[in-house]
């Protein structure tokens, strides 16, 4: 029973969610292979072969995979799929884009965003914004699965000594092409990998006021997140959104500021170890999940918090 995990990377570095996905794969079988599809991505391949628990790295190094467009990558994965019983990818925008396409090419019903492995064919996954947890059994011969990173502790980045097999480009498609990207650059930790996250909601009133959160984030080494309302209002970019249809985070400490606690927001943060809520409305639903609630005006509380840190 060999399992293929699709590595997420930017041609220079492996993305951490891959490590959580390898962890999930290792619960099913010790025979875990990583597929790296990219362009001039030797450094990623080196990282991958050192990852704990990885037996083999498949490397498809070709300009066609520079931007990892779904059409070409899905065809590539399909070309090696017959060697595997399971194909896994992180449930990030990368994995969510590619895996269902692969799944249909293989005539398989994908299992999305699993949070627990019961057996090689049975998995738990949240449905209805995490209001319920479903246990689902797959009867397909190949299991195609996306993995919620926060539900599995990452494997180590070292300790492995996988062999590397080069594979050639297969089924390169010209249906789509890359035009450009705007990737936010920040010195703060990545939202999904940070051990502390401080998020702002509509209560922040403006993008400028997010500075109040940023100063605190910098003192704590935290990442900054937001509710949908704050993103929709243009206070912060889309990649700040935490929730059912944004990012899923589970840091040691999550601080929600001026966020009411709608179920769609809770879906993205309620597995955090410790939750703090700062809100001026004592009846805000966020207090029902908060370990520590502070009923206060954020414009008083944040400067004071920053000063005392």
């Amino acid at each position: 029973m060999s399992i293929l995990v699709i590595a997420e990377h930017d041609n220079s570095n492996l993305k951490p969610a891959t490590l959580n996905t390898v962890a999930a794969a290792s619960e099913i079988s010790p025979l875990v292979h990583l597929l790296v599809a990219g362009n001039s991505c030797q450094s990623v391949t080196d990282e991958c072969s050192a990852v704990e628990g990885v037996e083999k790295v498949l490397l498809a190094d070709d300009v066609a995979y520079e931007n990892q467009l779904a059409e070409s990558i899905a065809n590539l994965i399909k070309s090696v799929s017959s060697d595997y019983t399971h194909i896994l990818a992180p449930a990030t925008t990368f994995g969510k884009n590619i895996l269902p396409r692969l799944s249909a090419l293989l005539d398989v019903q994908q299992i999305s965003e699993i949070i627990e492995i019961i057996s090689e064919d049975t998995f738990k996954r949240p449905i209805y914004a995490g209001s319920c947890i479903a246990t689902v059994k797959s009867n397909d011969s190949i299991k195609v699965i996306t993995v919620r990173a926060t539900a599995f502790d990452p494997v180590n980045t070292s300790g492995g000594s996988a062999t590397v097999d080069s594979i050639s480009a297969e089924g390169v498609s010209d249906l789509s092409s890359f035009v450009g990207e705007e990737i936010a650059k920040t010195d703060r930790p990545e939202l999904t990998a940070a051990s502390i996250v401080i998020s702002g909601g509509r209560g922040m009133q403006s993008g400028d006021n997010f500075h109040l959160l940023e100063t605190i984030a910098d003192k704590l080494g935290a990442a900054v997140g937001a509710s949908r309302a704050a993103v929709d209002a243009g206070f912060v970019p889309n990649d700040y959104q935490v929730g059912q249809t944004g990012k899923i985070v589970a840091p040691d400490l999550y601080i929600a500021v001026g966020i009411s606690g709608a179920i769609q927001h809770l879906a993205g943060m309620k597995d955090s170890k410790v939750i703090v809520a700062i809100n001026k409305d004592e009846d805000a639903p966020i207090f029902q999940v908060a370990d520590y609630g502070l009923v206060a005006d954020l414009f008083d509380a944040l400067p004071e918090l920053s000063e005392k840190l």
Partner: peptide
């Protein structure tokens, strides 16, 4: 233009 985890990506599709 697509909303991806790191920000925004623009692609051209036939």
């Amino acid at each position: 233009t697509r909303e991806i985890d790191g920000g925004l990506q623009t692609i051209k599709i036939k």
